[in-house]
């Protein structure tokens, strides 16, 4: 696993574990196989066949579902003749007045804007690469942004929140799921699958090589 002349190798051929700094030679494993850090077991490289296309399709589906989920009601409530339906935007913007407005904006960002932004960035960055074209301008920085946003994309937590809310007011009124809830449930599923298909090292590597090729082709 560990050869002595690794320190003399070209840094471009190496990979360091982001969690424990262990140094390896970056070798593309077989499709479906994974290169795992021997020390801390962080997955370093895990390419999958036709992953690019799969990820783009999933991102497009996420985009459609988020936009749909914003407009359709996700929960419906009725009690003593009063009926109310809530859409995602209603929930996101429910903290009105004073300092709670900040919370409204934060919630909107976490459950709508961040997932949306990540889907758009993924398509923008990866689509040209999948179709064997050079990556678009700023691809590396935008992919970095998409990665930085990852922990702040909380659609799946919101979906579980809907279920908890349902139980919480069960004694207060009758509740039922609207179409947007099911869209959200599907969204959660898609986000998880997309994450499993994404081999970050392969993306960084492809973008870097594409960028280099673009620079070579450009007139000096």
């Amino acid at each position: 696993m560990h050869d002595t002349d690794i320190a003399r190798a070209d840094p471009a051929e190496l990979i360091a574990c982001p969690q424990c700094d262990a140094l390896y030679r970056a070798r593309m494993p077989e499709h479906g196989a994974r290169a795992v850090c021997a020390r801390c077991h962080t997955v370093l490289i895990a390419p999958k066949r036709r992953a690019g296309m799969t990820i783009i399709m999933l991102a497009a589906a996420v985009l459609v579902l988020v936009l749909g989920a914003v407009w359709f009601p996700f929960l419906k409530i009725s009690r003593q003749g009063f009926v109310n339906e809530a859409t995602l935007l209603d929930a996101a913007m429910s903290f009105t007045g004073g300092p709670l407005l900040v919370l409204s904006l934060a919630v909107t960002a976490l459950i709508v804007l961040v997932p949306l932004a990540r889907a758009v960035l993924t398509i923008y960055v990866l689509a040209p690469v999948v179709f064997d074209r050079p990556p678009p301008p700023g691809a590396l920085r935008l992919f970095a942004l998409s990665e930085a946003l990852r922990p702040w994309s909380m659609a799946e937590i919101f979906a579980l929140g809907c279920a908890v809310a349902l139980v919480k007011v069960a004694d207060l009124a009758q509740l039922s799921f609207g179409p947007a809830f099911w869209m959200f449930a599907a969204l959660v599923f898609l986000t998880v699958i997309q994450d499993r298909w994404m081999c970050r090292w392969s993306v960084w590597h492809a973008l870097e090589q594409g960028q280099a090729a673009r620079r070579e082709r450009a007139p000096a």
């Binding site: 929960l75 409530i77 109310n84 929930a91 903290f95 929140g161 809310a165 007011v169 009124a173």
Partner: peptide
């Protein structure tokens, strides 16, 4: 999740005087 539950309930449970 608890913050989201509060947001959902606030948006949803607006049934005039009933609740």
């Amino acid at each position: 999740i608890d913050v989201f539950v509060v947001a959902i309930l606030t948006a949803l449970v607006q049934l005039n005087i009933a609740a």
